[in-house]
């Protein structure tokens, strides 16, 4: 999948959980990614972040990455 799209989708999820109360937003982003994205997509996102593109990702996605 194109990295742009992957990043956009992940950031959209993060945007929602930013608005939610509590201290566990990153965990909830990770939970959503694990529940709805297949492992291949999660892996692609991780690889993309590891290639030094993690600044494109919302802070919640970055914090969620190790948990997916």
């Amino acid at each position: 999948m194109s990295p742009d799209k992957l990043v956009r989708m992940a950031n959209q999820i993060a945007t929602f959980f930013h608005s939610q109360p509590g201290q566990d937003q990153a965990e909830r982003v990770a939970g959503h990614l694990k529940d709805f994205w297949g492992p291949e997509m999660r892996e692609e996102l991780k690889v993309y972040a590891q290639k030094g593109h993690d600044k494109d990702l919302d802070v919640l996605v970055r914090r969620a990455l190790p948990m997916i």
Binding site: M1, W37, G38, E40
Partner: peptide, 18 residues
């Protein structure tokens, strides 16, 4: 035990050859 691909993910994955 892992979720599979959604329609749009299938199409994306097709374009990239998987």
């Amino acid at each position: 035990p892992e979720p599979g691909l959604r329609i749009n993910n299938m199409l994306d994955a097709a374009t990239s050859g998987q």
